[in-house]
Structures are given as C-alpha cells and as structure tokens.
Computed example of a mutant assay.
Amino acid sequence: MSVRKNLRASAQSDALCLEEFLPYRFSVLTNRISRHLAKAYEKQFGITIPEWRVIANLARFAPMTASDVVDKSSMDKVKVSRAISKLLKSGLIERDTDEQDKRRGQLRLSKAGKDVFEEIAPVALGWEADLLAPLPPEERRTLDEILNKIERVLDDAGA
C-alpha cells in the first residue's frame, strides 16, 4: 500500500493529533536542531542556516550547480539562490561558467569557504555527538536504520 493510501486510511480512522503526527514532529525537531546549531556558527561566522547547507553540500559534492544544491538539500530555490548570492559576495564560494551551457554556473568553495567549513564542521559534529550522547550505540544504529527505511519509502514514492 502506498504512503498516501496508508495516510488516508489512518486519517479516516483516527483523529489527527498534530504533536504525534510524524511529519510535524520531524519538522519541529529539524527546525529546533537547526536553530540551536546555527547559534554556534551564526555568531562566529555570520552564516545563516541556508548558507551553511550550501557550504556543507559544496564541501562534499562540488562542483555543483544551484539546481544540484536545491536537489541535494531539499531547500527552496529562493533560499538557495539568496544563500549563493551572499556567499559569492562574501567570497566563500566561487562560480565557474559551464563551457557547455553558459547559463549554468558550477559552484565550489573558495579557499576562504574551505577554511570556514573546516572550522564549522567539527563544531557541528561535536554538537551532533552531544545530541546523541544519551543514546547507546545500539539505539544510534537503530535510529539510523529507521531513518534509512523512511528515506527509502519516500524515494520509492518519488517524494
């Protein structure tokens, strides 16, 4: 049964309790995590959440187009565009014109962008370690397996 059919059947039999609704819980949790972590790098580097996500994606997957960043990050095109503009102006990323298609720019971190990433990444990883510290290793593995299964369901649904 598809995700959509399961949701419809469930919604018909149970009243929606928003604070128990998984998509809502994920959204709230993600926003809380992002805001809390962002405090660590916004003060020191003046980087917003979307800018950090662009930097982190470029650190891992560059060169990328703006569309690639949108796809990888699942962020809104407008947020990605604004983040890229600010990062280009601040010199943290660079854009090379695609020789095949002059309208497409290939983005990558500049030396300064790599330096910022190298400073922020350990802060982010330390923060993640602190967040997961109450979970024993077996529960961490289980959490990872559950998230992977949910991602596969969404991949199969084309979401």
Rank of each mutant, 00 (worst) to 15 (best):
D101E: 10
P50M: 02
T65A: 03
V80Y: 00
L87C: 03
A15S: 12
A40Y: 08
K111W: 15
S67P: 13
A15K: 13
F117C: 08
P63N: 05
S73N: 13
G91A: 06
R82D: 03
I84R: 00
V28Q: 14
A38R: 04
L29F: 10
L88A: 11
Q106C: 14
Y24R: 05
W127E: 10
K114I: 05
V80T: 01
V69G: 01
F117A: 07
A38C: 10
R108T: 14
D98Y: 05
K43D: 09
V78N: 05
S34L: 09
K89N: 12
T97C: 06
E20K: 15
R25K: 02
A66I: 08
T30N: 10
Y24T: 07
E42A: 07
L109Q: 01
V28Y: 09
Q100E: 13
A38T: 09
D115S: 07
N31D: 15
S90P: 03
V28L: 13
A124K: 09
S85W: 07
A40S: 12
R95G: 10
L125H: 07
K39W: 09
V70F: 11
R53A: 04
L16M: 07
L58A: 03
L37C: 10
R53M: 12
Y24C: 05
P50D: 02
I120K: 01
F117L: 05
R60T: 09
R103W: 04
V54R: 01
L37A: 07
A59Y: 13
V70I: 09
L58V: 03
Q106P: 08
A38V: 07
A56K: 05
E118G: 12
S90F: 04
K89Y: 12
T65W: 02
Y24A: 08
P50Y: 01
E20I: 12
F45H: 02
A15T: 15
A40P: 13
L88V: 15
T30C: 15
K79M: 13
E51I: 00
R35A: 14
S110A: 15
N57E: 13
F26A: 05
S90Q: 03
I84L: 04
R60M: 15
D71F: 14
D76W: 02
F117W: 08
K43G: 15
R25L: 02
R82S: 01
S34P: 06
K72V: 10
L18R: 10
R53Q: 08
A66V: 14
S67N: 08
L58F: 06
S85A: 14
L22M: 01
S85D: 09
E94L: 08
